[in-house]
Write a protein that binds this DNA or RNA. Structure first.
Lengths: 222, 222
DNA sequence: GTAAAAAGTAACCAGTTAGTGCATTAGCGA
DNA sequence: TCGCTAATGCACTAACTGGTTACTTTTTAC
């Protein structure tokens, strides 16, 4: 009759901690659940009640920590950008040969989209709202600058080594690297119908990655 | 005190027609208004009442003609695909030299996205819903086949003429042509923040189109 | 040990939202 | 001109939705 392990926190792995209340953990659970929901339904299509449920938290907590549904969305979006940019920086491409570095970046971008499908949907959702949440974020800008300069460096090194042609705009290249992966994946559902093939089959994904690497390499070739 | 010209149909250019009831016209107005709304807010974010208002029609009419909000969305999506595919067919690329034909297609795709921004947003919205509306459409599949075969023909002709390399998958090429334009435009809001430049400025658009044509040409070059 | 602060809960509210039932009216064919 | 059918309008609802109020329980600082 006395209170047992498994109380308010729910059912999963809550037995260990004697600390029933854990602000940080609750916050994280909300963030995780919200990321999934927003990615699945967009900002407008997501329901605060559902997010609270899936986070095994009370709806009031969402408003306590994030002020509003949009505040929550903004946090998640910001995190998503910081996450991908951080992962990119960890690639450490500077000590690789230019061609290898570029191929590695194309491969990374593709793999990241595959492993983090929410990223794409969150970005789509944000663009539907004309980037009004991202506009408020200063962190994202700082991280983005680092990212652009990373590609610029690779490109410069390649030109110096004579393996890339000169005059390729790093921003256009960046956009193109993202585009050829992003478009394929975000439109995989309509694409599979239009082209009458399963674009998400293992071989199809491998083929697309090969094609994308090829596309970028030909683009910068001298 | 008697009924005047401008009655139920609203205020704009309704004075001419003595026929107050016009099923076809009402239907068209609903379609137009809905296209705009869905493109602006997505399926979930759009409001049936708003669509009815903007169409200067009664909400009841939407349900009369299209059964449900989703039925309306499906019709609009289907129309959007038929429209772009029809426009593509009208390009008549078969009598052009292969390189010119391909460039013309890249240019057309870009221009079409620019002039019909709703197309992109509708497709995005449909992919968020895992293409459940498009799946039901048979027309789209027929039109799509014609489209793929168009690119296949150009590619084959180019290979025969020795101006394109062999072995390029027409579907991958198709996807890439769409991708490099689509991604740039659909993510123009977050993109303008990340890259700290106005991606929609006139010169920026021109530069991107040039870059895209270059990308595709290098991709198929022998 | 205790009191204040932090974390958490449940019930509730006011405004929306997709969808309907039903009455009304215009136009068309005979 | 009559009557039928398609087009239209209005009022309504049941379920939802973001957000809040008022309250309880746990943790922590002293």
């Amino acid at each position: 009759m006395e209170p047992v392990d498994e109380t308010i926190t729910g059912t999963v792995a809550a037995a260990r901690k004697p600390r029933v209340r854990d602000a940080e953990a609750t916050k994280t659970r909300i963030l995780e659940a919200a990321k999934r929901e927003f990615a699945k339904n967009g900002l407008g299509g997501s329901r605060v009640d559902v997010i609270a449920d899936k986070a095994r938290a009370n709806k009031r907590m969402i408003y306590h920590y994030f002020e509003s549904k949009e505040g929550l969305f903004q946090t998640i979006l910001e995190n998503a950008y910081v996450d991908i940019r951080t992962a990119e920086q960890k690639l450490n491409l500077d000590h690789l040969a230019p061609k290898e570095a570029l191929e590695r970046l194309v491969r990374f971008t593709w793999d990241y989209y595959i492993k983090n499908p929410e990223f794409i949907t969150l970005v789509n959702s944000e663009n539907l709202h004309r980037a009004k949440h991202l506009k408020k974020s200063e962190v994202v800008k700082v991280y983005s600058r680092k990212f652009v300069s990373m590609v610029t460096t690779i490109l410069d090194r390649g030109v110096a080594a004579g393996v890339f042609r000169a005059g390729v705009d790093p921003v256009q290249l960046n956009i193109t690297i993202a585009a050829i992966g992003y478009y394929y994946l975000t439109n995989r559902f309509t694409g599979s119908i239009v082209f009458e093939r399963d674009l998400m089959a293992k071989e199809a994904l491998e083929e697309r990655l090969r094609f994308n690497i090829d596309t970028i390499m030909r683009l910068v070739a001298p």
